[in-house]
């Protein structure tokens, strides 16, 4: 008789709800990785998520744990409120680039400054997805969007903002890294980073953020595979992957 084992199955921390994400959108990969990490750490039942406004506004429908839905950009403030009155819970925000790097810039920076013991999953896909593909603060120079139809003119609209680099200068930050979701090797690395970002919180080492370069095939107007190639060829040079700040107590942590 042939015996077989399950090598991979849908994590318990995801509900059975089909996501509204477009085919090939790597939001789903990021969701899956967070869910896998919560499963592996055994913390699903004490975790409270904070959803943003943006494509992942309905994240709370897809995760099988307590969730609240924030106002646009305010997720880090909301997470602060939750974590301060219930420090025994694991609290994370899941935010896109419009939410975190535009309207919510003050909230994310000050959550880091206060060294809030929260975990932030930051999806950088260089565009506003939910509203239909407008320019984001993370949009690449020259990139065409519905609100930069001739390509982003950095002289008029500024340069792409590098959140990981910026937040890594803040003393209250315990773990700040950038990863990418464009191929299996990088997805594995992204998962380890997410694990470390939650471990940062469990150890009380301060603010943790994983910036994930993510695809938006629909608004980039290319196929899902081409979108992954775009991350590799066009986003990586602007947004270098790496560990921008790692608390010394995490340095030796193997996950």
């Amino acid at each position: 008789m042939v015996m077989e084992k399950v090598v991979y199955q849908r994590p318990e921390s995801l509900t059975d709800t089909v996501t509204h994400y477009c085919p090939g959108c790597t939001h789903g990969v990021a969701h899956r990785l967070v869910a896998e990490v919560l499963d592996e750490m055994g913390i699903r039942e004490k975790t409270i998520g904070v959803a943003p406004v943006g494509c992942s506004v309905f994240a709370y429908n897809y995760f099988n744990h307590d969730y609240v839905e924030a106002a646009h950009g305010r997720a880090p403030a909301m997470a602060t409120g939750i974590k301060r009155v219930r420090p025994q819970n694991t609290v994370y925000t899941y935010q896109g680039d419009g939410d975190l790097a535009s309207i919510g810039m003050a909230e994310i920076v000050h959550a880091a400054i206060r060294g809030e013991n929260i975990t932030v999953i930051f999806i950088n896909n260089a565009i506003y997805g939910m509203t239909g593909g407008q320019m984001a603060p993370t949009t690449l120079a020259g990139m065409k969007t519905t609100s930069s139809p001739l390509g982003r003119d950095v002289e008029l609209t500024g340069y792409p903002v590098k959140m990981a680099e910026m937040l890594s200068t803040i003393d209250g930050a315990g773990y700040i890294v950038r990863r990418s979701l464009h191929n299996p090797v990088n997805i594995r690395k992204a998962k380890k980073a997410i694990r470390k970002a939650f471990e940062t919180q469990e150890r009380g080492l301060g603010f943790a953020m994983v910036e994930l370069l993510s695809s938006c095939p629909t608004n980039w107007k290319i196929t899902p595979q081409e979108a992954l190639d775009f991350i590799e060829n066009s986003m990586l040079p602007v947004y270098p992957l790496g560990d921008y700040k790692v608390h010394p107590e995490l340095a030796g942590l193997r996950v």
């Binding site: 008789m1 042939v2 015996m3 077989e4 084992k5 399950v6 090598v7 991979y8 199955q9 849908r10 994590p11 995801l14 089909v18 996501t19 994400y21 085919p23 090939g24 959108c25 790597t26 939001h27 789903g28 990969v29 969701h31 899956r32 869910a35 191929n183 299996p184 997805i187 594995r188």
Partner: peptide
């Protein structure tokens, strides 16, 4: 399964007896 954005794939592997 690692690249699947929808956690749609369950993977099985035979184990040597």
């Amino acid at each position: 399964a690692i690249v699947c954005p929808d956690a749609a794939i369950t993977v099985y592997r035979e184990t040597p007896q």
